[in-house]
């Protein structure tokens, strides 16, 4: 296990590359989804309000 993490002495470079890639990809897609849904809620709320006002 330690040997695997060590990556022949290149562990710091290898794991930073993999870690940054994973974090970036996950963050971008989750943030996009969260924002898309948040804006959709605003649109729906506005529609409802308009309907109530007639």
């Amino acid at each position: 296990m330690t040997e695997f993490l060590n990556m022949g002495g290149y562990g710091a470079f290898v794991w930073t590359a993999y870690g940054l890639s994973a974090i970036s990809l996950v963050t971008l897609v989750l943030r996009s989804r969260a924002r898309a849904n948040a804006v959709l809620l605003q649109v729906d709320a506005m529609r409802r309000r308009r309907k109530e006002e007639g």
């Binding site: 990809l25 971008l28 897609v29 996009s32 989804r33 924002r35 898309a36 804006v39 959709l40 605003q42 649109v43 506005m46 529609r47 308009r50």
Partner: peptide
């Protein structure tokens, strides 16, 4: 495949933002 997934969510985001700004302008 990740691009397709992320792209669809960002398209939805941009479409929703546009809807919102049109509604605000009408208001």
């Amino acid at each position: 495949a990740y691009f397709v997934v992320a792209f669809i969510w960002r398209m939805r985001l941009e479409i929703n933002l546009r809807k919102l700004s049109v509604m605000r302008m009408n208001e």
